[in-house]
Design a protein around this nucleic acid. Structure first.
Length: 210
DNA sequence: GCGACAG
DNA sequence: ATCTTGTCGC
């Protein structure tokens, strides 16, 4: 007989095992120069272990404009992702996906270009309205714009500010939120994002003092 | 017109 | 994003 693989969904089309190899990406900026650094970190969600990491240096090529973050960060993020040996089954971005004024932000751009499943986990509200979710880990509410559900406001730790999860490319909101919780066993933000943030900062500092 | 505005 | 002191809590 035929048996569904572990982690497979049971609802019709789009069946897919939950991703195991997940990458997180982030960019750090230098205050007094155009130098920037990006890091891509891949972890095995099942074991919680880091599989590999890549860091790249570059320069800002576009100013920060609310709503156009992708134009600023996608190029160097692609460079960092390109240095990974393994192909991630999903990529987590530090920012938004479709919860955006034009419904197409960082995680969407990165997903379309790489053809990888992507989603965004943002730290502060940007667009859409929401009700404050409950106080416990796993409590959530919808990020809405009228009748459109653009994402979830998700509490990843008890009594800690929630994060804003939105789909980027080839993934469902439920899977993105579920994966965000799996990736955040101890702290507010996904471990891959914390690691990418740390590594990009560290590399930037090192590059500054030379 | 005014204010707000991911990272 | 980055800067930046003290402070509250495990």
């Amino acid at each position: 007989m035929i048996v569904a693989p572990a982690g497979a969904t049971s609802t019709g089309r789009g069946n897919r095992v939950a991703p195991t190899l997940v990458a997180g990406v982030d960019v750090s900026y230098d205050k007094t120069s155009p130098r920037i650094t990006a890091a891509a970190v891949m972890m095995n969600v099942t074991t919680g272990e880091e599989v590999e990491a890549a860091v790249v240096h570059g320069e800002v090529s576009f100013p920060y404009v609310p709503g156009l973050l992708a134009l600023r960060e996608v190029p160097i993020l692609l460079a960092a992702l390109g240095r990974l040996v393994h192909r991630p089954e999903a990529v987590v971005c530090d920012g938004y996906g479709i919860a955006h004024p034009r419904r197409f932000s960082l995680a969407c751009h990165l997903g379309v270009v790489t053809r990888l499943p992507t989603f965004g986990v943002a730290k502060t509200p940007f667009v859409a309205t929401y009700d404050e979710p409950g106080p416990r880990r796993g409590d959530r509410s919808s990020l809405c714009d009228g009748d459109d559900v653009l994402g979830q406001v998700l509490r990843t730790q008890d009594d800690v500010k929630p994060v804003f999860v939105s789909v980027g490319h080839r993934t469902s909101l439920d899977q993105a939120a579920s994966l965000t919780l799996d990736l955040s066993p101890r702290y507010r933000l996904p471990e891959v994002i914390r690691r990418a943030d740390f590594l990009s900062r560290e590399a930037l500092r090192r590059n500054e003092n030379r």
